[in-house]
Design a protein around this nucleic acid. Structure first.
Lengths: 137, 137
DNA sequence: CGGTATCCGTAGGGATACTG
DNA sequence: CAGTATCCCTACGGATACCG
């Protein structure tokens, strides 16, 4: 990633691009944002996340949680009981991330239909805008 | 807060997850957000974007622009001059996306150091929290 | 200038099996 | 329950060459 990464002195568009590049590499993956959102209303156990984050594999759940923990976005608490229990919870830093991610989600909810329409329009450019566009995906 | 209680009729978490899943698949890729940000202060030519979006290949610039156009986030205007000139500009829909992306960028700028520190702490767990954390490896 | 077409390596990520 | 370990496949994306 940051191969040519010398110390940029101050701000400027390059600096900001670089920052958002980092963030996208971090939470722009397939699962991080979803997990962070799941954790927004309190801690979760591994198996709870596995059930609630739809479609995620055990492997990716582990990997993503580890990465988020590494970046200080969530904390991992192991209870040495049997059977074992592990709780994941957003840190203060992780909670600050909640704001922009929630903004993204709200945008998604608000404009998903716009995008679907635009896509349909682009994909089969029938001259009839009233033709049923969404075959119930 | 019990899991045995699914009284949410329509806009449950699954619905929202599904939406943000879509958005992440769309703008969570390596270049889309960067391009949208570049276009925030007005239209750009292909070659301008190629220069301004650091590190992007011609191929990925084309592909990403096409995808964004397909989703109605930007418009493509061809001037039949010679040499040819093509302008890309955010649509109204694209401009609405600017808000959450900018929020993400601001978060990135504000917390990049926090993440770097957390990462360093995690990666080499020296017992000395005052040791210089980023040895510019 | 603004693209396509092609080739190709790598990383992301799913499925499955095993473990403490 | 909460993971590892392994295999394997594909989509992303870089490099390069060519075209209108």
């Amino acid at each position: 990633m940051s191969a040519t990464h010398t110390d940029v002195p101050v701000d400027g568009p390059a600096e900001q691009d670089c920052s958002i590049r980092d963030v996208l590499d971090r939470v722009g993956d397939k699962w991080s944002a979803l997990i962070v959102l799941r954790l927004s209303d309190g801690p979760r156990r591994f198996s709870e996340l596995h059930r609630e984050v739809d479609g995620i594999s055990q492997r990716m759940l582990t990997l993503t949680l580890r990465a988020l923990e590494r970046d200080g976005l969530l904390s991992r608490t192991v209870y040495p009981t049997v059977p074992p229990r592990v709780d994941y919870e957003l840190t203060d830093l992780g909670r600050t991330l909640l704001t922009p991610i929630a903004a993204l989600r709200e945008w998604a909810v608000a404009h998903r239909d716009d995008i679907r329409r635009a896509r349909a329009r682009h994909d089969h450019p029938t001259s009839d805008p009233h033709a049923s566009p969404a075959p119930a995906s």
